[in-house]
Amino acid sequence: MTRLLNALVRDEAGFIVSAELVLVASIAVLGLVVGLSEVSLNVNNELEDVGSAFASIDQGYCVEGLSGHKGKSKGSHFQDCQDFCAGQYDVQ
């Protein structure tokens, strides 16, 4: 039994393979960190664009018309107040 344990301790056949796997795994993890940080930045930029699009929706348009026996008048007006944080690049 001790001969088997000594043989396993002295065996270096898998050392190169495990060192290569550690190197490849380290490079893969670094690549994933950089890639995910770029994905995060781009998702935040797209969500900011969506928020700016929602902020630019106009809700102040009104159509009022009058009608009587011999005539009618169509009227409309638009009133839009500036929103708080209505700039295009407010979310930083």
Rank of each mutant, 00 (worst) to 15 (best):
A7N: 08
F78C: 09
G68S: 06
G60V: 06
Q82I: 03
G65E: 13
V43Y: 02
G87L: 01
M1T: 13
S56T: 05
F84W: 07
N42M: 06
L21M: 13
E46T: 06
S56P: 00
A53W: 08
Q59S: 11
N45R: 09
H77C: 06
I57K: 11
H69N: 14
V9K: 11
L47G: 04
E38V: 03
V9F: 11
F78P: 00
G35A: 02
F84K: 07
Q59W: 07
C62D: 12
G71D: 09
T2E: 14
I16C: 03
V17F: 08
A19P: 01
A28E: 04
V91A: 08
A86C: 13
S76A: 13
L32E: 03
A28D: 01
H77S: 11
L36Q: 10
N45E: 11
L66Q: 10
F54G: 05
F15V: 15
Q79M: 15
L4K: 13
A25H: 08
V29R: 12
E20N: 15
C62P: 00
F15R: 14
D80N: 14
F15G: 08
A25N: 08
S73V: 13
G31C: 08
G60A: 09
G31E: 04
T2G: 12
R3V: 10
L32Y: 04
L8W: 06
Y61S: 12
R3E: 15
D11T: 00
F54C: 05
N6D: 03
N42D: 06
T2R: 14
D80I: 05
G31W: 03
A86D: 12
H77M: 08
Q92N: 13
Q92C: 07
A55Q: 11
C85E: 01
K70Y: 12
G71P: 01
D11Y: 06
A55H: 10
L66C: 07
E20R: 15
Q88W: 02
V63T: 14
S76P: 01
V91E: 05
A13C: 03
Q59V: 10
